[in-house]
Measured scan of single mutants.
Amino acid sequence: RGFLEKAAVKKMAKAIMADPNKADEVYKKWADKGYTLTQMSNFLKSKTAGKYDRVYNGYVIHLD
């Protein structure tokens, strides 16, 4: 289950990176699912340092 969630989160993160207008909708879905910042950090780990920082930081702001 965790692997599928991670894959889904990364897919949506890539969608945000391609079209930032989708961010609020995606952040709301993640918040509704109760994803914590720790979970998001783990889901968005990448071999490329900083690749998903913008998405993660946007989610931090959304939760605030």
Rank of each mutant, 00 (worst) to 15 (best):
R1H: 14
G2A: 13
G2M: 11
G2I: 12
F3E: 12
F3A: 13
L4R: 15
L4K: 14
L4N: 12
L4P: 08
L4I: 10
L4D: 12
L4M: 11
E5K: 06
E5P: 05
E5N: 08
K6T: 10
K6H: 10
K6P: 05
K6V: 11
K6Y: 11
A7F: 11
A7W: 15
A7K: 15
A7S: 10
A7Q: 13
A8V: 10
A8Q: 11
A8D: 07
A8M: 13
V9W: 02
V9M: 03
K10N: 04
K11L: 11
K11N: 09
K11Y: 08
K11E: 08
K11I: 09
K11C: 15
M12K: 04
M12Q: 15
M12V: 04
M12W: 07
M12E: 14
A13S: 03
A13N: 01
A13V: 04
A13T: 01
A13M: 03
K14R: 14
K14G: 07
K14D: 15
K14F: 05
A15Q: 12
A15K: 08
I16F: 01
I16G: 01
M17Q: 05
M17D: 03
M17A: 04
A18E: 13
A18Q: 11
A18K: 12
A18L: 11
A18Y: 08
D19L: 04
D19A: 05
P20L: 06
P20R: 05
P20Y: 08
P20F: 07
P20G: 07
N21Q: 10
N21M: 13
K22G: 06
K22F: 07
K22C: 15
K22D: 04
K22H: 06
A23I: 04
A23P: 01
A23C: 08
A23Y: 02
A23R: 05
D24R: 09
D24A: 13
D24E: 11
E25A: 11
E25Q: 09
E25W: 10
V26T: 08
V26S: 03
V26L: 05
Y27W: 02
Y27K: 00
Y27P: 00
Y27A: 00
Y27L: 01
K28D: 05
K28A: 09
K28L: 06
K29R: 12
K29H: 14
K29W: 10
W30T: 00
W30K: 00
W30C: 03
W30F: 03
W30V: 00
A31T: 06
A31Q: 10
A31N: 06
A31M: 09
A31S: 10
D32M: 12
K33V: 09
K33I: 12
K33D: 06
G34A: 05
G34I: 03
Y35R: 00
Y35V: 04
T36F: 03
T36Y: 02
T36C: 05
T36R: 03
T36H: 03
L37A: 09
L37P: 09
T38Q: 14
T38A: 14
T38F: 11
T38D: 12
T38G: 10
T38C: 15
Q39F: 04
Q39V: 07
M40Q: 01
M40H: 00
M40A: 03
M40Y: 00
M40P: 00
M40I: 15
S41I: 07
S41G: 10
S41T: 10
S41K: 15
S41H: 13
S41D: 08
S41V: 09
N42H: 12
N42W: 15
F43I: 08
F43R: 02
F43W: 14
F43G: 02
F43M: 11
F43P: 01
F43V: 04
F43Y: 07
L44E: 00
L44T: 00
L44W: 02
L44G: 00
L44S: 00
K45Q: 12
K45E: 11
S46I: 06
S46F: 06
S46Y: 08
K47A: 09
K47D: 14
K47W: 06
K47Y: 06
K47R: 10
T48E: 12
A49N: 11
A49Y: 09
A49M: 11
A49L: 11
A49W: 07
A49I: 11
G50K: 06
G50S: 06
K51Q: 09
Y52E: 01
Y52D: 00
Y52F: 09
Y52T: 02
D53L: 07
D53H: 05
D53Q: 07
D53N: 06
R54V: 14
R54S: 15
R54M: 14
R54A: 15
R54Q: 14
V55N: 01
V55F: 03
V55T: 02
Y56N: 01
N57V: 09
N57K: 11
N57W: 15
N57A: 13
G58Q: 04
G58T: 01
G58I: 03
G58K: 01
G58R: 02
Y59E: 01
Y59S: 00
Y59C: 02
Y59K: 01
Y59F: 05
Y59H: 01
Y59D: 01
Y59G: 00
V60F: 06
V60R: 12
V60G: 07
V60Y: 05
V60E: 09
I61P: 01
I61V: 11
I61H: 13
I61Q: 14
I61E: 13
I61S: 12
I61M: 14
H62Y: 15
H62V: 04
H62P: 00
L63E: 02
L63Q: 04
L63C: 07
D64F: 12
D64N: 15
D64S: 15
D64R: 15
D64L: 15
D64T: 15
